[in-house]
């Protein structure tokens, strides 16, 4: 009895020692995060409540003005639409990657990675060319007689949504592929023998089982989209700004660190809140615990 207690004590001790030595190795990274992330964030938070005068004036102005609310609204709607689109488009691709013969899936995977590794500016400019009034897409649509007038696909939120969906796709496909690969195809065969149509296999088995991957990808995309700068700046219009553009304008053009800091802080809080919700719904080990 005491022996067993001792043994478990020793084991606990050993684990603690191991954790402590692990901390030593993690120290450089932790210092880096502290000095270059935590400190600036706190500094920015301070400036948002101290400049130009101490108080919550910046926050009141930010959340009280219809112009700024509009920008928050734009940002959330675009991010939500981009998230829904990339999950919808990414799911079949991830499924294909998971079930294709290894040779072909490696190739397709390489294409996806390659597009992800291509310079962001290059890809965004490419979309500008494709989407402009005299661009390929408008020309083709007019050529086949689907439209008479070129569509306004760029310099507005439509352009931003298209461009960002494309850029965000890999961030959905990668985690989804990982989760789908762990699903035993025999489970789907069992569903089929049980009487489930292809559609029922998809909606009642495959999608529920892939949900943790979809949630991880969706979270990644939504949070990244909230603070995305380059694509909205290049493909968006001047009238419909997004949050990151607004922060940049406060800091760079208006040199208003108070407002910039307040906007950045609101974004951070929203992001953390969404992450907390996701953890609660799809957190590690939730599957199979029941109840």
């Amino acid at each position: 009895m005491t022996l067993a207690a001792n043994a478990s004590e020793t084991r606990l001790e050993a684990r603690r020692t191991r954790a402590a030595s692990g901390l030593v190795y993690a120290l450089p990274a932790l210092i880096l995060v502290f000095v270059f992330f935590v400190v600036p964030v706190v500094a920015l938070l301070m400036r948002s409540v101290l400049e130009p005068t101490p108080g919550l004036g910046n926050y009141a102005e930010l959340l009280g003005s219809s112009t700024y609310i509009r920008i928050f609204y734009n940002t959330f709607v675009v991010s939500a639409v981009v998230t829904v689109l990339s999950v919808t488009i990414g799911f079949p691709v991830a499924w294909m990657l998971a079930i294709m013969p290894a040779r072909w899936s490696t190739l397709l995977f390489a294409v996806i990675l390659l597009s992800m590794w291509t310079n962001l500016l290059t890809r965004t400019y490419a979309w500008m060319v494709l989407l402009q009034r005299t661009g390929v897409i408008n020309k083709v649509l007019m050529g086949i007689g689907l439209i008479d007038q070129p569509l306004a696909l760029v310099n507005n939120l439509t352009g931003v949504t298209i461009g960002m969906t494309y850029i965000m796709l890999p961030f959905v496909i990668l985690p989804l592929r990982g989760v789908i690969k762990t699903i035993d195809p025999a489970v789907l065969q069992a569903a089929s023998v049980c009487g489930a149509t292809r559609w029922q296999c998809l909606t009642r088995v495959l999608i529920p089982l892939a949900l943790p991957g979809a949630a991880a990808g969706a979270l990644m995309v939504f949070v990244m989209s909230l603070g995305y700068f380059v694509t909205p700046a290049l493909l968006g219009g001047t009238s419909n700004m997004m949050l990151a553009e607004m922060i940049a304008q406060f800091v760079q053009s208006l040199v208003n660190w108070g407002m910039g800091g307040a906007a950045a802080f609101v974004l951070l809080v929203v992001t953390l809140a969404i992450y907390a919700v996701q953890l609660r719904l799809f957190g590690a080990g939730r599957l199979g615990q029941g109840g």
Partner: peptide, 26 residues
Amino acid sequence: IGMVFQRYTLFPHLSVGENIAFPLRV
């Protein structure tokens, strides 16, 4: 036709009761 597989093919996201109800629900 009913089938029991070599590998475990219960639907991991459904309880025992829901697994058994699955063929009747569909």
